[in-house]
Design a protein around this nucleic acid. Structure first.
Lengths: 210, 210
DNA sequence: CCGGCTTTTGACCATTTGGTAAATCCACGA
DNA sequence: TCGTGGATTTACCAAATGGTCAAAAGCCGG
């Protein structure tokens, strides 16, 4: 059997799980800074502490690694949005979402940049996932937000553009970290960012009092 | 003379200006989609309608083209920020800046993505420019905004994070266009974006009435 | 401690890619 | 019109890169 990876026939051995994890970890490092085409199997192999042919023993090729990474990551990436609770208090729900999203930018900047690279370059390997995985979720949550607005529990706002703004502002701190490192004075960038972003969206979303 | 490009000794011939322009135009197309390492001289050559060696006749190499593009672009890119007028009405000035920035995302998405690619990947070829070109300008304008806040002419806001938010939200529409194309319903995305972004920052920045 | 599997490696390949050298083409002013 | 310098092409490299293959090495239940 050539690809123990994809065939779910047998349970993967301990070595397999360990090495696959190592490879994905290394690949995340490399892909997230070099982009897909910029990354090389040699880089990944070296970062993983394995030989290049050995990596190709575990994955069907460079693209397979990339796709595996993107898919695995998209799950956790949209999780916070999925958690938007239709039963909750609208403003609380959205602010919690925003905080969580910013946290993820801080904790998983590599994942964010992996994604950013893919999208900036036209999402060549991810468009299907965007259409069938992300779009329905965004449609659903946009409808929810629209409902909240209709009910007067949120200030009027275009739901999809709100979501874009949240993504843009939060992910910016991960994706453009190189720029931020240059422009921001030393200090609690992340704390200030949290305060700023939360305050901004609170003002945007708070329904008119009275 | 090998490099009529860099040596300012003689005025460039008509052919030179034409071909250099062509090359840069083609390179912008390619680099903005593929990133630096993803782009190939063959792609650029083909897009420019020139042969590869001919391209290397006009530029010292792949990197020289990229750097030329980045530098040329940075000028126009920060121009709107430079225009923030200390004498103007703060809210008007900032909203005008925001509108202009969004306009530029619409008119020059390739430039925006070229820049995004470079920064996401750690700004390997642009850090000096960021430090010596962009940082002083941001420092200056951040101080200006801080002054406006102190004078009570803007709602309290952390100036640098405000600037980041403006960049994030406006450039997002260019940089993540592939995603937006999937998620947004057909229609005037740009008009809605303008309304949304302007409204958002107006709420954020408007000083307390009274 | 053996036999059969999983895993790993060294050698190798074809293609791509950035770049070069020299020959050729061509525009244009004297 | 003709020579000359700028512009262009043809024919190449050498290195990098994704990937293959068969042999070697390790691992592990019996």
């Amino acid at each position: 059997m050539q690809r123990p990876a994809d065939t779910p026939a047998k349970k993967p051995s301990r070595i397999q799980t360990r090495n696959r994890r190592r490879i994905l970890e290394a690949a995340l490092d490399v892909f997230s800074v070099e982009g897909y085409r910029g990354a090389t199997l040699d880089q990944i192999a070296q970062a993983a502490g394995l030989s290049k042919p050995n990596i190709l023993y575990y994955f069907d090729g460079k693209e397979a690694i990339h796709v595996t990474l993107l898919n695995a990551m998209m799950e956790t990436w949209v999780e916070p949005l999925r958690r938007l609770d239709p039963e909750g208090e609208p403003l609380d729900e959205l602010l919690r979402y925003i905080r969580r999203k910013l946290e993820m930018s801080r904790e998983y900047p590599r994942e964010s940049r992996l994604f950013a690279n893919e999208i900036v370059q036209g999402a060549p390997r991810m468009r299907p996932h965007l259409e069938h995985g992300l779009k329905p979720l965004v449609d659903e949550k946009a409808a929810l937000i629209a409902r909240w607005v209709d009910e007067g529990r949120l200030a009027p706002v275009e739901p999809r553009h709100l979501i874009m703004s949240i993504w843009a502002t939060t992910q910016h701190y991960a994706d453009f970290e190189a720029q931020i490192a240059v422009l921001m004075p030393e200090g609690d960038v992340w704390d200030d960012a949290a305060a700023h972003v939360e305050g901004m969206f609170r003002k945007l979303l708070a329904p008119e009092a009275g």
